[in-house]
Amino acid sequence: MRFWGGIDVGSLSADAVIIDEEGRLLGHAILPTGRDSREAGSRAYAGALEAAGLTPGDVVRVYSTGYSRARVREAEGAKTEIACHARGAHALYPDVGTIIDIGGQDSKAIQVGKGGRVLNFVMNDKCAAGTGRFLEVMAGALETPLDHLDELAAQSTETLTISSICTVFAESEVVSLISQGKKPADIAMAVSRAIARRTVGLATRVGVSGRVVMTGGVAKNRAVVDLLAEILGAPVDVPDEPQIVGALGAALFARDERG
C-alpha cells in the first residue's frame, strides 16, 4: 500500500491529510498556524500521520499549498490553494462547477471544469472584508466564540443591516447596534448576511455554474452557507470537513506526480 500527504498552511490554520492510492482519506489534522508556519505545517502533518496510523517513511510524497506552501519542510512540491481546492472539491463532488472558499485572510471563487481543472478564479485578498477574519472580529465584538456565531444567528427575529464593507467600520456598526440594545442574535445574522453578500459579489464575477461547493473554515458557519444559498438562488454543498479540501487537493497532486 502506498500513501501520499497534503499540507495546507494558511493564515489561521494548518491542515494536513494522508490519502491512499484510491484517494481515500486515511487521516487528517487541523491546527492553528500560530507564529511559525513551518512548524505548524510539520505539526499538522505529524497529526495526520498519527490519525492514519502511519509514519513518515510510509508516505511516498507530500505536496503543500496555502500562503506558506513554500515554507513546508516535508513537501517535495507545491501548488496554489486555487488549484488544490479545485482538485480536492472535484474529488469529493465530481460534478462541482463552482467553489467558494472563504479562508482566514482571503476569499476565492473558482470555476471548475473537467477533472477539477481551474477554468477561472477571482480572489479577494486586499482586506479582511469577506474573510474569516471579518467573522472573527465580529464574534469578538459580540463576545461570542467564533464557532457559536451561527447558533446565535439562528435565533434572530429582526432583520438588521451592516452596511460597511471595511471590517473596522463594520465593527463600529456592531458596537453601535449593541449600544442601541439590539439583540446579539440579530446582529450575528446581520454579520453573516454581510459576508454572504460580499461573497456572492465575488462569485458572480467569476460566474456561478454547476454544483456550488463551499470550502474553507467559514463553510462551518451554517448561517453564512444558508444565506449564500438564498442569495445565489442555488444549493450550496459543504464537505464534512471543509477545512481540509485544499490539503486533500495537494495530496492528490502529490499522488498524480509520476515516480
Binding site: 500562503y67 501548488k79 496554489t80 490553494e81 486555487i82 488549484a83 482571503d106 481543472r117 481551474v118 477554468l119 477561472n120 478564479f121 480572489m123 485578498d125
Partner: peptide, 17 residues
Amino acid sequence: FDAIGTRLSAFCEMLEG
C-alpha cells in the same frame, strides 16, 4: 507581493492545465 504571487502562480497553473 505574496498574495499577488499566489494569483500569478494560480493563473500559470490554470494555463498549464
